[in-house]
Computed example of a mutant assay.
Amino acid sequence: MVIGVTMINVLPGYEKAAYREMKNIEGIKDVYHVFGEYDFVIIIDVEDLNDLNDVVDRIRQSETVKATRTIVGAEL
């Protein structure tokens, strides 16, 4: 199991649309709207790194997303 934490920035005014879109992507466990450098923190829970890359790629393909940063963790 691989856990990814992805922070994203979205286009101004598109926060609600981005939230709805992220909630519908398979593999995304939680979406948190935050204040500060990033607009959202997304928790991704998938089987392996290939699946994590696929989910992050789907996030990046969104027209509402400007930038992402992902931290990867794995259960021991």
Rank of each mutant, 00 (worst) to 15 (best):
Y38G: 04
V56C: 03
I28K: 05
G73K: 04
K16S: 14
F40Y: 15
A17Y: 03
T70A: 01
E47S: 14
V10Q: 06
P12A: 11
D45P: 05
R20L: 09
R60A: 12
G13R: 01
I43G: 02
F35P: 04
D57V: 13
V31A: 03
Y38R: 07
L76H: 08
I43M: 06
R69W: 02
V41Q: 10
L52R: 03
Y14S: 06
E63P: 06
E37N: 09
I42A: 05
I44R: 00
L76F: 12
K23Y: 00
M22Q: 08
N53C: 03
L11N: 06
V34L: 08
R69D: 04
A18P: 03
P12K: 13
F40R: 03
V31Y: 02
T64Y: 15
D45K: 12
K66T: 07
V56M: 04
D39E: 09
N53T: 13
G27L: 06
D51L: 08
K29Y: 10
V10E: 04
L76M: 13
E63S: 04
L11E: 02
D48P: 07
Y38A: 12
L76A: 14
E21N: 06
G36S: 09
L52K: 09
E37F: 06
H33W: 09
I28C: 01
P12V: 10
T64H: 13
K66L: 11
K29L: 08
T64P: 02
E37V: 01
E37H: 01
E75C: 08
I28W: 00
N9I: 03
A67W: 13
V46G: 02
I8W: 05
I42G: 07
V2R: 05
I8N: 06
D30S: 07
D39M: 10
T68M: 10
Q61E: 14
V10S: 10
I44E: 01
I25V: 07
R20T: 12
G36K: 08
V2L: 11
